[in-house]
């Protein structure tokens, strides 16, 4: 990889993290409302996978979706505006954090139902196959989603029909509060793929280059008409399942370990770039500063945007019917 491409990966990871810390802050300030599930700690996965995708390739995302959406190229301003419920947001204030989508970028939406993206992703892969467009679809999901029936119906049909879908599991060890060892009958989520004779990987999800290379292989397989793959990316979320969750189920020393320089995906990659690719402290500083500026501008954009007109609550239910409002 060229230095420029490596720095792009770094920039994406930092953008996700800084956006998420800002979201956390804005949530505490009650500017951002509702539920927010932050992606901090898992940045290498969305970044490494999406770096292999074309603009028109599809992704399905999850309740913890900000990272995927940023990595697929979404506009931070429209994202933050949506989190703040503004008219200029991605969903015009009708969706919020769990439902950001942008079909122009192939983002088929964050999804509030765990496992909700699986069959959708198969549908997108099916369209690509039928319309011969050579697009692929990446389905992101957490370890908890592997417990849903929907995931198994989807993986089975994806394999039988050789759909160009890549199942990317972000195994952060906890399904809400349920520890993986209490919720998974197998050693690894990748074992699920064994049942469907699907090529599968179990990798360090906090190493962006490993994620990148593994996803590259799986995506090429899908694009070549060889069907789906499954990638288990082992990772950890730094925040609770959702913001302000009274976190009682994780040992503090476990969190400390995953936040250490040796485990943190961004600190690790930064060190690697400084030591191996002639990247200077100054370059890193500049990247961080430019992201800070971008995130700040996103918040300003959101706060300067109007709330949606009440009448808009009755539109977009159907393409051709406006529902009745209050008298």
């Amino acid at each position: 990889m060229e230095k420029r491409e490596l720095l792009d990966l770094y920039q994406t990871m930092q953008t996700i993290r800084k956006f998420e810390f800002q979201t956390s802050k804005s949530f505490a300030e009650e500017i951002v409302q509702g539920f927010v599930h932050l992606y901090i700690g898992e940045e290498a996965i969305a970044t490494g996978v999406c770096a292999n995708l074309n603009r028109d390739d599809y992704i399905t995302s999850t309740h913890r979706g900000h990272g995927h959406i940023i990595a697929k190229g979404a506009d931070l301003k429209r994202m933050m505006a949506e989190l703040c419920g503004r008219e200029t947001g991605y969903c015009k204030g009708k969706g919020g954090s769990m439902h950001i989508a942008d079909t122009d970028l192939g983002i088929l939406g964050a999804n509030g139902i765990v496992g909700g993206g699986f069959n959708l992703a198969c549908g997108a892969g099916f369209s690509s196959k039928m319309l011969k467009t050579n697009q692929v679809c990446v389905c992101f999901f957490g370890d908890g989603a592997t417990g849903t029936g929907a995931s198994h119906e989807a993986m089975n049909i994806a394999k039988v029909w050789k759909l160009p879908v890549i199942f990317v599991n972000e195994n952060n060890l906890y399904a809400d509060s349920c520890r993986i060892t209490d919720g998974l009958a197998s050693e690894s989520t990748a074992d699920r793929a064994l049942a469907y004779h699907m090529p599968h990987y179990s990798i360090d999800g906090n190493d962006v280059l490993t994620v990148y290379e593994t996803a590259k292989e799986a995506i090429e397989r899908a694009r070549n008409g060889e069907g789906p793959s499954f990638i288990e990316c082992k990772t950890y979320r730094w925040r609770g399942h959702f913001e302000v969750e009274p976190e009682t189920y994780r040992p503090p020393e476990e969190l400390k370990l995953w936040k250490s320089k040796e485990k943190d995906p961004i600190a690790r990659f930064e060190k690697y770039l400084l030591e191996n690719h002639g990247v200077s402290e100054e370059e890193v500083k500049q990247i961080k500063a430019s992201i800070d500026k971008e995130v700040k501008a996103a918040v300003e954009f959101a706060l300067n945007s109007p709330l949606p007109d009440k009448s808009s609550a009755c539109t977009d239910v159907y393409t051709d019917i406006v529902e009745e409002g209050r008298a």
Binding site: L108, N119, G123, G125, M130, L131
Partner: peptide
């Protein structure tokens, strides 16, 4: 679910 995904993406 597959039908819904296909409907979103051109079928």
């Amino acid at each position: 679910g597959l039908s819904a995904g296909a409907a979103l993406t051109g079928m």
